[in-house]
């Protein structure tokens, strides 16, 4: 009955797991890099675009938010290349999917933050002669962004958790490497436990950071969650 734990064979491949973790962070980082600015634009289009822009952007955001990420990933990896007649590798498909997927959530964080700013701020900005772009850039966004920081970081952590899907299209992230090692060493209990532990260390550290920051920012205004 007693199971003999043996981390020896698994630790021999530890560098593979570490490379997997690097790849996980790479996909997460790049998706954030594209997803956050795109999210800002989506939010602005949804709030201030004409009807012809507002409605389709709203539909796009809702669609990206309500379909499972794995369905999106498969669509971009298996369907889109045929449709457009292009070639796309797992890494590109992953970054594309998670940039778009996260941008929809970031858009809602941006929107919540912008809407939460009191109307008087807009009026004050107008009164000193600013047009809408200038008031948005100089008055509204700087205040809104401060309120959004915790919600942003929470979304970023969610994003990192979601990127575990990339293994399903054979991109060598941490979970994919763990699965490979489990198959070659027959030590799936040790490998998957170790991989889960690695995810936990990274994600828990981020969560603690977010919580500290939240406390630090204090009650300067209610935060918006996506």
């Amino acid at each position: 009955m007693g199971y003999e734990w043996d981390f020896g064979v698994v630790l021999r491949d530890f560098d593979l797991l570490l490379w997997g973790l690097v790849n996980t962070l790479k996909v997460t980082g790049l998706s954030l890099l594209f997803g956050v600015p795109l999210g800002l634009f989506l939010a602005l289009w949804r709030l201030y675009g004409g009807r012809l822009i507002r409605v389709p952007v709203g539909v796009l955001i809702e669609f990206l938010r309500t379909t499972p990420p794995i369905a999106q990933l498969f669509w971009f990896f298996f369907a889109m290349p045929i449709l457009l007649g292009i070639e796309i590798d797992p890494f590109q498909a992953s970054v594309l999917t998670f940039s778009l997927q996260s941008s929809a959530f970031f858009a809602e964080v941006f929107r919540g933050g912008i809407v939460s700013i009191d109307n008087g701020q807009w009026e004050a900005a107008k009164a000193i002669g600013m047009d809408r772009n200038a008031s948005l850039r100089r008055i509204i966004l700087p205040q809104a962004v401060k309120r959004m920081v915790p919600a942003f970081l929470e979304r970023a952590i969610e994003l990192m958790k979601t990127t575990t899907l990339v293994g399903t299209i054979s991109y060598a992230d941490l979970l994919y490497e763990a699965n490979n090692i489990a198959q070659s060493t027959y030590r799936s209990l040790e490998v998957f436990s170790l991989a889960a532990g690695m995810y936990f260390v990274v994600i828990f550290a981020c969560s603690m950071g977010v919580r500290r920051l939240e406390r630090h920012l204090g009650r300067t205004g209610e935060t918006t969650t996506g």
Partner: peptide, 21 residues
């Protein structure tokens, strides 16, 4: 533990690792 690990990792752990014990 369950909030700070990806849910796919949890599912795969229960499918591939847990049956051993």
């Amino acid at each position: 533990v369950f909030r700070n690990t990806p849910v796919l990792v949890q599912i795969m752990w229960f499918f591939f690792a847990f049956p051993i014990i």
